[in-house]
Every structure is written in C-alpha cells, then in structure tokens.
C-alpha cells in the first residue's frame, strides 16, 4: 500500500490533489459527477469583500496547450459566500477547504480573512496577491516584496489559521517575493498564478480577450511553474503548494520532487472535469512505477 497523504502546516490531506481556485467554483458544479470527498482539499473561487461581475466577455482565448482567461474575480462577495455557500458546502464536502481570498486594499484582505477565520470548515487561507485580471490591486500587491509582506502581516494579524500567499510569476524575481512573505509570517506559499498573455484574432486584427490581456495557464506553463517552485524551495522553509499546468499523476510527482508539498490542478479541470479523480486513481500505480512508497518522502528530492 502506497501512502499518498501529506501535511500542509497543521492540515493533514489524504492526498496532495487540490483543484485550483477559479476552476472549481465552490465545488457545486463537480459534486454530482464524482464524490469530491476523494480530493485532498479544494481551493474555492477567489472571493473579494464586495460582489464582482468581473470583466467583459470574451474572457477566454484558447492557446497551444493552454488558455488565457480574463474572468476578473467574478464572485458574489465574502458575506454571501460565508452565509450561503459555506453551509451548502458542508453538506457535500467533509474535509477542510482552502479559502482563496482577494482584495483591492489591505483592509479588504483583512475583512475577508477575519470572515473565513471564524469558519470551522476552512483549513487554510490562500491569499491571492497575484490576479493579473484586475486593476488597482490583485497582482500589484504581489509584484513587490514590500507590499507582499504588508499583506501577509495584515492577514496574519487577524487569523490563527495557516496563511498561504499565492504568488504571481509576472515578476523579476519570485524568490524575493516568497522570502518577503515568509518574513511577514506566511505559513506557506501557493505558486504560480497565471502568466500574463494575449492572443490576437487574425480576422478582426484585434485582441480576442475583451480586456486585451489575461492570465495564461495550462500544460504549456508547467516547466515555468516547476522551475519557480524549485527556486523558491531552496530559499524558504515554509511548505509550497505547487501549481501551473499540472494535468497528470506524473506532473504531480515531478512538482513534488521540485519542492511542492501538495499541488493544485487548474486548467485541466476545464478540459476534463474528472481529471482530479483520474489523477488520484492513477497516483498509486505511478508511484509504484518509480518506487515511491510515500509521497511525503519525495518532496524536494530533486535538490
């Protein structure tokens, strides 16, 4: 029997597979198609203080081995999510979830963190300082070490739950940002968010995405994500949730060897809604193939 379990801070997961924020809603759209309790956890749709419609459409552009999205944090607001969605969520998911929150000011991050801090079902708070699709916030907090640390400290001051900072790859040196988050008291790092990209329609000669640019994700970015996780693992002591193009059990093992304690699966859910289930089912035989008894033992073993 192989051991798939891993531990993120004080949260024990049956396996390291976590659907990534923004590709799994609040779990509702997937719960009827497989028992989502087989997942390690899931990261809920990025939620802000106020309700947001998001960006104009088209919000999606296909790419080779991936896609660009410019959803722009569409969500019903943290109060609604905590009051209406969380009680529903309890009925179909009996494990700790990862609450992904975002903001446009330090106060908004704090407001959301305080809200989810009171929720028993929240195992980890994932702070999105890396959304490329919103102005005046989101990614701007994550592109400078100083502001990344400020957000970390502010959130840590209002919660006792583990805080994982979700980083953007759209920076000169992601290691500096990760270190600043660690110095600010972060319990872990989630990485990477999407890469800023664009596509142009040859017929109209205009950008496909209404907002012109958006976040590029999918298998095409896996080597970039892997490299960044590898670099950050060498620089910080806190655990890393690795993500960026993970689509197979092999990718999971590779990302863990680079230094991830767990992984998030994003775009692959959009192509194949059953992909997380398939990865979890494929992991044991894939582990046997590479003589891995316990996934915990391979974390960072590429170093």
């Amino acid at each position: 029997m192989v051991d798939l379990s891993v531990t993120l801070s004080n949260v024990k997961l049956d396996n390291p597979i976590i659907p990534a924020s923004g590709t799994f809603g609040y779990g509702m759209e997937f719960k009827d198609f497989y028992d989502i309790n087989i997942l390690g956890s899931f990261s809920m749709k990025g939620t802000t203080k106020e309700e947001r419609f998001g960006n104009p459409t088209p919000r999606i552009a296909e790419c080779t081995a991936g896609l660009i999205n410019s959803v722009g944090l569409q969500n019903p607001g943290i109060d609604f999510v905590v009051e209406k969605q969380f009680p529903l969520m309890k009925k179909y998911f009996n494990k700790p979830i990862i609450a992904n929150i975002s903001g446009f000011s330090i106060d908004e991050y704090k407001y959301c963190a305080e809200k989810v801090d009171k929720e028993e079902q929240v195992g980890i708070i994932e702070i999105n300082i890396s959304c490329p699709n919103v102005h005046n916030g989101g990614m701007s907090f994550g592109t400078e070490a100083k502001s990344a640390m400020e957000v970390t400290k502010a959130v840590k001051s209002v919660t006792t739950k583990p805080v994982y900072m979700k980083l953007t790859p759209n920076v000169t040196n992601i290691v500096d940002i990760a270190k600043a988050c660690e110095d600010g008291g972060a319990d872990g790092i989630s990485m990477i968010n999407t890469l800023l990209g664009m596509r142009i329609d040859l017929k109209t000669r205009k950008p496909i995405i209404a907002n012109k640019m958006g976040g590029f994700s999918g298998p095409a970015i896996f080597p970039v994500a892997l490299r960044m996780v590898y670099q950050v693992y060498e620089a910080v002591k806190i655990p890393i949730i690795g993500m960026g193009g993970i689509s197979t059990a092999k990718d999971v093992i590779e990302m863990m060897l680079a230094g991830a304690t767990a992984v998030e699966v994003g775009s692959a859910n959009l192509k194949n809604p059953y992909v997380c289930k398939e990865i979890i089912e494929a992991l044991p035989s894939e582990m046997e193939k590479y003589k891995i008894d316990s996934l915990k033992e391979i974390i960072g073993k590429a170093h």
Partner: peptide, 9 residues
C-alpha cells in the same frame, strides 16, 4: 472555457 459552469468565462 469549460462548458460546465466552472470557469465563469
């Protein structure tokens, strides 16, 4: 994007 209500595209 997905066709199943997940991505909000």
């Amino acid at each position: 994007g997905c066709g199943i209500g997940a991505c909000m595209g």
